[in-house]
Amino acid sequence: MVKKNRIISNSVSDGTFDAVNILINAILLVIFMWPLWFMVVASLSDPYEVNSGNVVLWVKGFSLNGYRELLKYEPIWIGYRNTILYTALGTVINMVMTVLCAYPLSRKEWMARNFWLKFCLITMYFGGGLIPTYLVVKGLGLLDTIWAMMIPGALSFYNALIVRNYFMNSIPVDLFESAKLDGATHGQYLLKVALPLSKPVLSVVALYYAVGHWNDYYTALIYINDRKLIPLQSAMKDLMSSAQVLAAQITPLSSEGMMSVKAKMELAMSLKYTTIIASIIPMLIVYPLVQKHFVKGVMLGAIKG
């Protein structure tokens, strides 16, 4: 009934609205997708064709030279290896700290709960700033160690709040009561009941942390000087700023011996495209699978506790 009514009374204006809406969304789809698509296409094309403007939508002069150059470019692989370590170990540390923070703050019977909640909340809005924090990290002897990449950011209170709210709102209170009757302690209840029941929220938060580590550039900029410890993002930044230097480093691929400066520059540019693809490939593969979880995380965060 209702549907019919709408169709009769608003067919003209709503029809226009819907058509325009579809058009806008189609354009937006292109705007969101094309830059990423172009990176993929450019990385697979002959650099000469890319520079001449013949590559816009599709591969021209298919070439894997950029990827071959990438395999030889060591800083990226050092960065890759380090980032995998920082992401894996860092996320584990994050998750342990997050649960240790979230669980006690979710227990209403804990007398000190409100005090410590405020203690944590203050850190969201006020901090010492760059230099005082740097001095603390330096004082602890963490500069130029892998720990500088993981310890100073070991806990995000925002994420801890998401987990805490889940503990409080989504796990039935009766479960704790019955566990208590069975003689379970908080530790046992947390490990055997609360955590297994919180898998959805824990995986979301872990994903947030992991993406944060994978994309982290700032931490290394401030705390890491040692070239052997730099993460992928720093290696990529160096690549961006050194096109000329890079061109000079590139050695001829084949037995032709000499390579013109122009060809070297082109190959250097090709290397940039392939590096970018290499750095976002893990994300592009995992993203469609976990996209729903990310979105769920936003909803979970939106519920105020």
């Binding site: 240790l100 410590w116 006020f126 603390v136 806990l155």
Partner: peptide, 18 residues
């Protein structure tokens, strides 16, 4: 909760003193 207190004391409250 102790590790959390230590973490914030060291990486947030100590810098505030700084």
């Amino acid at each position: 909760f102790l590790p959390v207190v230590i973490y914030y004391a060291v990486f947030n409250y100590a810098p505030m003193y700084g």
